[in-house]
Design a protein around this nucleic acid. Structure first.
Lengths: 192, 192
DNA sequence: GTCTATAGTAAGATAGAC
DNA sequence: GTCTATCTTACTATAGAC
């Protein structure tokens, strides 16, 4: 991993742990094992470095979700796999946490990948649910768009509850709850 | 409102807008219209002031929720009233946002009211759902504890989605989604 | 109680040598 | 490309006068 990569990775970790406001150039340099001159040679400053880090996290997040949601299986199976995927719950979501950062939200450049990520995620899940309903897996009363937003919200809120509790338990419980609610709209398989 | 109150209120607003890391004593003083000497006369420093502010927000949040959840009506009606209550969605949750703050989470004193608030909220909602189920409003398959956690998570996650989108729309949609899912477990009223 | 002065540390960068 | 000064401003207080 070269210096540029180490700087981006360090920034990614620090944004995740401490947010933009709580992350200093000095902390980034120390974690990357790079000097000030090195950092300012490759990047114009903290915002540009943060943008590179956020972009990378956003891409990773979407591609990981897509791997789960594009897999074979029923809609419920895929949504369950996505929700139950092993996660470092107490770390929270590297993109979601940025929505709490006033300087990220105030800068259109930094904010854009955050907006895009959740837009994409809601649409991607809505597509899975719509397909499932079209195939007769769900009853017709299921609102695919709204339910997709609910599922993404449960994940993001689950992180909040877990961090507040200092335990992954509320996250798992919230996921259990939404899957239980969703089960009420699943049409029993005639082949089972 | 005396100086102490103005200091606490200013801290509350700033913690809400910018978090603990992003809030400086100077900013608090300016918003409160108080000098440095005044602030340090009444409080030992930023942590003590933050604790007073967080405690006040936590109390307000719980008492506002209780007003909704202890009202007359069916369980679904009360949960709906709670979820649909008018909110300044884009501001987010004054307590939930603190879970993203590393210095809040690292300090047991500051963290405790955050932990307590969500504990209380989950239990309070679980009680409403359990009562509803016991009265036959829900079918027996409803998991009251898990669903309570889901509902709190939808709120917290809804704030995240709304802030990311710069619009209250995803919040409202996530709420619509969870209420739609919950409706699948409601037993039709024989008197209607 | 409130004000001003002082002070050490960190943030966020720029300049210029190597 | 990287390193070491240097610089300005902000953070988070403490001290002592009024």
């Amino acid at each position: 991993m070269d210096t540029v990569d180490r700087l981006i990775e360090s920034t990614r970790e620090l944004l995740w742990e401490r947010g933009y406001v709580g992350t200093s150039p000095k902390a980034i340099q120390q974690r990357a094992g790079a000097g000030q001159g090195s950092m300012y040679h490759h990047f114009t400053g903290k915002p540009e470095l943060a943008l590179a880090a956020i972009d990378r996290s956003a891409r990773e997040l979407c591609s990981a979700a897509d791997a789960e949601l594009a897999a074979p299986g029923s809609a419920v199976e895929r949504v369950t796999a996505y929700l139950r995927r092993e996660r470092d719950v107490l770390r929270g979501c590297p993109i979601g946490r940025l929505t709490q950062d006033p300087e990220i939200m105030a800068d259109p450049m930094l904010r854009e990948p955050v907006t895009q990520t959740f837009d994409w995620m809601r649409r991607r899940l809505a597509r899975v649910l719509t397909e499932g309903r079209d195939r007769g897996e769900f009853d017709a009363s299921l609102n695919a768009d709204a339910t997709a937003s609910t599922i993404v919200a449960v994940l993001q809120g689950g992180y909040v509850l877990a961090r507040a509790a200092g335990s992954a338990e509320p996250f798992d419980e919230a996921v259990t709850g939404v899957l239980g609610l969703l089960a009420g709209h699943v049409v029993p398989d005639e082949n089972s």
